[in-house]
Write a protein that binds this DNA or RNA. Structure first.
Length: 219
DNA sequence: CGGCCGATCCACT
DNA sequence: GTGGATCGGCCGA
């Protein structure tokens, strides 16, 4: 597989996430670990911009310890922890100092399916192995330990290949998933029409907290 | 296949 | 202290 598919040049990722996101459709992300190798062909991605431009972006309020990788050079993984349970993976865009990233929302496991099933026993079908950003990260075996890894230096353990050419007429765009405020209206989600590995659209849900046990009597 | 709802840690204010 | 770029178990069809 990798012999027939070239590494995606870092130069491609020097543009904004909005420009690069549709180009990532059909590309192949690979993670090699002691457990083995899993490759995923991307079918759904979401673009996030930088400080001041995008309320839905982790970089909206400037650089912090968490989002520092977003402000670094392009071609690196930004992996963050969410909902107390899940990891999600992004590809960083734009030159150092300018934050932008593309969330990997869905894909098709094209290599290492056995290992992916081992990591995702709850999946009900092979299409569910990497449908949804946290599922995709889990199928690849990506956690916080992968934050900041370089996809483009060819040294691994993560790689990004150009993959086989996709029919451009299959590219669709629409509002981002699970993002509230002004960010919801932005058509910055991209997917390949007809793929079974594209996650269903869900509008932003206002969170209601689970009731926490309080020690003192409320009277 | 799809709807409902609880889970559970971290970053930020 | 608070909410989040989400998912799985359970149930019904």
């Amino acid at each position: 597989m990798s012999d027939e598919s070239s590494v995606l040049p870092r130069k491609v990722l020097e543009r904004s996430a909005l420009e690069v996101a549709p180009l990532l459709l059909g590309c192949v992300v690979v993670h090699e670990s002691p457990e083995g190798r899993v490759a995923i062909r991307l079918t759904e991605v979401e673009a996030y911009a930088g400080a001041g431009e995008d309320p839905g972006s982790h970089a909206h309020r400037g650089e912090t310890a968490r989002n520092a990788v977003m402000f670094g050079p392009p071609g690196h993984l930004y992996v963050y922890f969410t909902y107390g349970v899940h990891w999600c993976a992004n590809v960083v865009c734009l030159p150092r100092g300018r934050a932008s990233a593309i969330l990997l929302r869905g894909g098709e496991v094209i290599e290492g399916e056995r290992l992916a099933w081992g990591r995702r026993p709850a999946a009900r079908s092979s299409a569910e192995l990497a449908r949804g950003p946290a599922r995709l990260a889990q199928a690849l075996g990506l956690t916080g330990a992968a934050n900041g890894l370089d996809l483009c230096d060819g040294r691994g353990p993560v790689f990004l290949y150009a993959g086989e050419a996709v029919d451009r007429s299959l590219v669709r765009t629409g509002p981002r998933t699970g993002v509230g405020g002004d960010g919801a209206a932005r058509p910055w989600r991209f997917w390949l029409n007809g793929e079974r590995t594209v996650s269903p659209y869900r509008a932003h849900m206002p969170q209601q907290r689970a009731p926490r046990a309080s020690a003192a009597g409320a009277g």
